[in-house]
Each structure stands twice: as structure tokens, then as C-alpha cells.
Nucleic acid binder design. Structure first.
Lengths: 136, 136
DNA sequence: GCAATATATATGCTTTAACAAATATGATTG
DNA sequence: CAATCATATTTGTTAAAGCATATATATTGC
């Protein structure tokens, strides 16, 4: 099971070339988010979410961390400066998009009242680096 | 036949998610290049080249100009700042890649002695903005 | 000047592989 | 056993490659 030799540019862009995956990246941003939140916010079947997260993980764009029953996903910057800048630019671009803004707004709402979103007891999204979640 | 309403992010990344198309973009860079050069440098069947160029054109990343028998392709910056920056960054990234450098080197060589590359009479690549081709 | 032809490029068609969605099932943890 | 998430399977769609052919322009012969 050899690790990937070099960062695969083609695979990187293919991973970005799907709207569901763009929505997932948009929801993560600088935070670490639990799978159950993705399912709830996107309103998509859980296997679909898992598969797209696996695709992103395989492309080296996100990483997963287990915490008990829950899996947390976060964006990891690729091991290449160019890819990192492209990814950042992409996230900026997503922020301007109406639909993406709506997704993030719903996530914020769900964070503040998880019970209403069938997210009782689920771990809240948390900022990955230093600052805490500005909404909650 | 309605024109595309907005710039399609998914389609944009899908267009970048193919190695042949990345090679084509790499060869264009700031120049306008004739199809026959692509065919010669990539060593691929002409229909394959044409089809990938059509894909890029459809995604709004390149434009075509006819000059007699020949078709010239160039990169056009997308109507969105984010996409433009990503495209530029991608081109910078390509410049660092060994295989891409080799492609560009062969293009330069072919420019300087078209006869050796079965490119007799074909129009040379030309810079799109102001400066002339630095190699020829 | 016009028909025939050659050159450059695009498109149609077929096969095959990748991928997305949906459903069912398996694995891990509490 | 329940909850969370991942994976297997099937099906339909997209897309890539290869081959043949069509289109557009230029050139040649008469």
C-alpha cells in the first residue's frame, strides 16, 4: 500500500469538480465539522456524504479524526504551495456564492440550536487553529 | 440556445481535472497556439486534441480564432476574479512541473525549426498581449 | 474561373472506464 | 442493543480514447 509519490494535480482538481464536495469544503472552512452536521445541513443521505468525504480525503484535501462515535473532518492544506493557494482562493470564491452563504448560515443556526436540527449531543464544529467559533 | 447564466465553478474545476487539458493550458500560457503544434508536441491523435480544446472552450477557459486553415487557441481569463486568480496560480504551478517544462521546451524547439517537427508553414505561436515570443 | 484535391480541424460513433446516486449492509463505539 | 459512520452493490450517467468521417479553407490543374 504505497503512499502517493507526489501530489496529484489532476486528482486535486477532480476533487474540486463536484458541487457536493464544494459544499462540504465550504462548510468546513477553518473549522472541524462532524459528519452528522454535513448530513443535516446538506439534507443528503449519509452514505453520499461519507463517500464524498472519502473522495476528498483520498485526494489529500481533508483529514478525519475520530472522537468516540463521531468523525470530524477538516481541511488540510496540500503539501504544495500552489495547491494551497488555489485551495484558499477557492474557499474565498465559495464565500461569495449565494447558495454557499445559505449553507453556512444554516450551519451557524444548527450550531446554536442543535436540538431543532436532530443534532442532540453531537459535537459542535470547532475552529481548527486558534480562534473560537465566532457564531456560538 | 441560452448562454450560460453564470460562470460554472464545478465545470471550471472539471476542465482542469484532466492531464491532457493541463498540458494544453501549459503550452498556451500567454501565447496563442495553433492546433497543429499541440498535436505535434503532445504526440496525441488530432481528434483527441480537438476534443479537449472544445471541452476547455465550453468551460470558458480558452477561446479559438480562425486564420485560414488554422485555428489558434489562447487562454481567456474567466469573468470572475476568483477563477482568474485560480487559473493564474494553476499556470504558475504547471511551470514548476518537470513534465510540463519538458513540453514547453519541445514547443520552443519546434518553434525554432518547424520543418523538423512536421510543422512546415504552420503559423508560429505568438504572444497574446504585447511582448513578442522570447524564444524565436 | 471552376472542378478536383489536399490540408487543417471538428464531429459522430462505439467501447470502456470512472463516477454519482440510492439502497442495503457492515464496522466501531458507547 | 443503539448510534454513528463506512463500505459494498447496483444502476444510470458522464466522459475518455480510438476510429472514421464531415467541414472549411487553400491550392492545383485545366
Amino acid at each position: 500500500m504505497a503512499r502517493k509519490a507526489r501530489f496529484d494535480m489532476q486528482q486535486f482538481f477532480q476533487a474540486l469538480g463536484d458541487n457536493t464536495r464544494l459544499r462540504l469544503l465550504n462548510l468546513m472552512g477553518e473549522r472541524e465539522v462532524c459528519v452528522c452536521y454535513f448530513v443535516e445541513i446538506l439534507g443528503a443521505p449519509q452514505p453520499k456524504i461519507s463517500r464524498h468525504l472519502a473522495y476528498l480525503r483520498n485526494a489529500g484535501i481533508v483529514s478525519a479524526r475520530r472522537e468516540g462515535k463521531w468523525m470530524h473532518y477538516r481541511i488540510v492544506m496540500p503539501p504544495h504551495v500552489g495547491a494551497t493557494q488555489i485551495l484558499r482562493q477557492t474557499l474565498d470564491w465559495l464565500e461569495e456564492d449565494k447558495a454557499m452563504q445559505s449553507d453556512r448560515a444554516r450551519l451557524t443556526k444548527a450550531c446554536c440550536s442543535p436540538a431543532k436540527y436532530d443534532l442532540e449531543g453531537a459535537p459542535l464544529p470547532a475552529a481548527v487553529s486558534e480562534q473560537c467559533c465566532e457564531a456560538c
